[in-house]
Structure formats: structure tokens, C-alpha cells
Design a protein around this nucleic acid. Structure first.
Length: 274
DNA sequence: AAGGCCGCCAACCGCTTTCAT
DNA sequence: CATGAAAGCGGTTGGCGGCCT
């Protein structure tokens, strides 16, 4: 049995917001705040809307710090890098982009970035990282390949030559020509969306590597060692990298199939170069 | 000019998580 | 600790506008 609806849909207005409704909601929130209860807010504000609808309208459109307009290339790169690492956790990704909402980011990904990825795939970029990645100048390409998290492989993140799999940290240099360097996003369940922000020219590093499952062609975890940490700042909550579909991450039956790859093993990507 | 198609994005839906009692 | 309500979140839908034929 499903839960009761938050409001009587037959009695509340739905669909696009009018300028008058926007003004009413904005005025009420600026003067009174939410009062800690979105459900009761429309009644107090004199709006014939569902509380959830009011909340969404405020968060996604009316909030004064919302940034409207197109995404910059730098923002694209941040989205891409984080998506490839943590999957479709739009609120987390959005928290790293001041003025952007999760809905914005999600829409932008679905309408623009995913297509770029698709185009890149069709342009024939399924080159093995071991042959195309100039930064991975190691003598043991197979080991590097094996140790790279699937998400890192897919994303075009490339191992920083000397630091990868050495000591207790794993650092990735995003494609230097396209991707920004990311700082510790300090994400965990209590992640403060306001702090910290990604900074240019900082690095995206994991520390204290523990076992993170890799994914084989049949989708099973192969339990190979990875240098990604479950306590990674980006929140690998179970011993799985996001690629395997955990928390809505990329999965081989999803976007990879869209790209025309038969199995995950076919995918050794690098250098999207948005 | 008109109809169809497609992309974009605001809004909705419903599930999960968090919090108060 | 259990329960219910509210908030948070991500997937999906539908309408609008622009482009193409």
C-alpha cells in the first residue's frame, strides 16, 4: 500500500507557475522563511499549490542565488568528472557548482553532456587506455588498467604516473587539456553542500586505499584491488565504485550499450576533450 | 505557410532518508 | 525502538518553442 499523497491533487493548482504566484511565494519566503514546514507553507502564503511544488519552485527557480543561463565549459567538466566518479547524485554534483540546482545539472546532463558522450563514443574513441593514455607511462600497463577503478577508466581520468598505486594515495589528473583539477569534495552523509567548493588547480585525490570492487564483463564484482577508498571524499559508501550501478551510477547495460559497446571490457576510455 | 519533429527544461511522481514524537 | 510525517532526491513526463521539410 502506498503512502498517502502530500496534498489533494484535485484541489491544488498544477502546471507552470504564473508570475503572480512566483511573486507571492518569493515575498512570503523572504519575509517569513519556510517556517520549517513546506507542506503548510502554501496555505499560509495564500497559494493554491502543493507544498512540494512550492519547495521545488523556490529551490529550482526563485532562490536569489540561482544562476540562470548556459553552463560553462568548466562547469561541464566538473559535472562530467563528478558523474564519472559518483554517478547520478545530482544534488552532490550541483553542490559543487554555485548557483546551479540538481534539476539544472540533471537536465543539462540528459540533454547535452550525455549526447556529447554519445558522439564521442561514435567518433570511435574506444581506444585502450594502455595505448592512448600518454600519461600512463608505466611499464605495467595491465596492472594500471586493472587497478584503475571502472569509473576512472570510463571518465577519462588518468592516473598520475608516479603517484598511482604507490603509497597510500591515488591521485588522478583529469585530462589536462579539458578537465579542471578537483579538490577534495569532502563528501559524506553529512556533507555540507556549501563547503568546500571545487577549486581550479587543486587535485582530486583519494587516500587510504581499501578494496573497491571492480566489475567484470558479466557485471559481477571481481574484488580486484582498487586504490579508491570507501572513505573517499566522494563517498564510496559500499565497496563499489559507482560504475556498477550503485546509487544510479553508470552501468554497462545502460549508457555503455547506448554507446554501442558490448561489454564493459570493451571500454577503456580516455580523453573526451569536451 | 503549415505541419512534423526534436530539444530543452519546468514540473511532477514516487521512493528513500531524516527527523520528531 | 517504532512509527508517521516531512524533506530530499532522482527518474520521468509534458509542454513549449525553434528548426526543418
Amino acid at each position: 500500500m502506498g503512502r498517502a499523497p502530500c496534498c489533494d491533487k484535485a484541489k491544488v493548482k498544477r502546471g507552470p507557475w504564473s508570475p503572480e504566484e512566483d511573486a507571492t511565494l518569493r515575498s512570503f519566503l523572504e519575509n517569513h522563511g519556510t517556517g520549517g514546514n513546506w507542506i503548510a507553507l502554501p496555505h499560509k502564503a495564500g497559494l493554491n499549490r502543493c507544498g512540494k511544488s512550492c519547495r521545488l519552485r523556490w529551490l529550482n527557480y526563485l532562490r536569489p542565488d540561482i544562476k540562470h543561463g548556459g553552463f560553462t565549459e568548466e562547469e561541464d567538466n566538473v559535472i562530467w568528472t563528478l558523474y564519472s566518479t559518483i554517478g547520478s547524485r545530482w544534488s552532490v554534483i550541483a553542490s559543487q557548482l554555485p548557483g546551479r540546482t540538481d534539476n539544472d545539472v540533471k537536465n543539462h546532463w540528459n540533454t547535452k553532456l550525455k549526447k556529447k558522450l554519445l558522439m564521442a563514443g561514435k567518433a570511435g574513441f574506444n581506444h585502450s587506455m594502455t595505448t592512448t593514455n600518454n600519461n600512463a607511462t608505466t611499464n605495467n600497463n595491465n596492472a594500471i588498467d586493472h587497478h584503475l577503478s571502472s569509473s576512472a577508466r570510463f571518465s577519462g581520468l588518468v592516473p598520475k604516473t608516479e603517484s598511482f598505486d604507490q603509497g597510500n594515495s591515488a591521485c588522478f589528473d583529469p585530462n589536462p587539456s579539458a578537465l579542471p583539477h578537483l579538490t577534495d569534495a569532502s563528501y559524506d552523509r553529512n556533507f555540507d553542500p556549501q563547503e568546500p567548493k571545487l577549486e581550479p588547480n587543486s587535485q582530486f585525490c583519494y587516500s587510504n586505499p581499501v578494496e573497491v570492487s571492480d566489475f567484470s564483463a558479466n557485471g559481477n564484482a571481481s574484488s580486484s584491488m582498487s586504490s579508491l577508498s570507501t572513505s573517499s571524499p566522494l563517498g564510496f559508501e559500499s565497496n563499489f565504485a559507482s560504475f556498477g550501478g550503485v546509487n544510479g551510477g553508470l552501468d554497462e547495460d545502460g549508457i555503455l550499450m547506448e554507446l554501442g559497446f558490448d561489454s564493459y571490457n570493451d571500454v577503456h576510455l580516455s580523453g573526451f576533450g569536451f
